[in-house]
Structure formats: structure tokens, C-alpha cells
Amino acid sequence: MQKIIEAKCYVLGNNIDTDQIFPGRYLELVDPQEIASHCLEGADETLAGRFQKGEIVVAGTNFGCGSSREHAPIALVNMGAAVVIAESFARIFFRNAINLALPLLVCPGISQKVKQGDLLRVDLQNGTVENITQKETYPAEKISDYAMSILEAGGIKPLFRKKTGLE
């Protein structure tokens, strides 16, 4: 997996719930690209159209609160988000994202420090976020060993297949 990510970021607020990440009216969709086309529509209707593969989502506290819908991280992964950096994450969203190998980084105060479009350099291994545009560095929480082992395996599915000898 890519542990250094250098890309532009999109900044969102606090309590971005799963209805904003992926509105309930689209829940019957199964195709990942179709799912991705509605990503974050509840927070910013045009974001999915502008977002480039490999870019970064930044948010405030409690990102992903609300429903257990895995469509939320599926949408983010398929929209091409390389990492989500937030001040905190809701629990089920956290599990779902790590299971799908979407890296999440907890970084205190980040949503107030970075501006829309800032270029960030994120070190997932060491847990740092460098803001190249503003020439600042912010400490983040290191990803736990357990979560990192799932991310490195490419998510729960390949890990599980390996574990059970299915592959």
C-alpha cells in the first residue's frame, strides 16, 4: 500500500453523517462507480464530479456518524479518496473503512488548519500531515498495528482469504 500520499484536499465540517456521505435514496445501488458518483452529495452536491483520484478528504469531528451503511466507505474508495483525515471518526464507519482498506487518520484540529485545495503530504506510517501550501506540519495519531495490518493486506477480504487458506 502507498504510505506517503501527496495530493490536494477537500475540507468538510463536523458530524458529516452517513446520510451526507451517501444519501439513503441511493442505497439500492450496487455498482461501485454508480455509488461513487453520489459520494458526499449530502454535504456538497458537486464534490464527486470535481474530485480527482488520489485526492484527500479532510473533516472535523465524528466523521461517518449515523448508519452502518458500508456504501459510505465504498463511495469514498471508488471516488478515489486516498485517505480521510478527520478530528475523530464514528465507530462503525471506522471499521467499515479499514475493512475496505481506506486509510483513516485522526488529526486534532485539522479542519480548522487546512484550507480547501491545500496541497498535503500525508505519512501514514508515522502519522504526520504536512501542509505544503501553508508550510506547516500537524501531528496525527499513528494508525494502530491491528488496523495497519488490515490496510497492508488490502482489506479484510484478501486477509480473510489468506487466513482461511482459501487462497
Binding site: 452502518s68 451503511r69 458500508e70 466507505p73 462503525i92 471499521r95 467499515n96 475493512n99 475496505l100 482489506g155 479484510i156 477480504k157 480473510f160 482461511t164
Partner: peptide, 13 residues
Amino acid sequence: GCGATDMATIMIS
């Protein structure tokens, strides 16, 4: 609560 991948893990194991 959990998502689909966690549930699939339970369904198998």
C-alpha cells in the same frame, strides 16, 4: 452494528 464486510466475516466464521 456492523457493515457488510464484517457481516460476511461472521456469516463464514
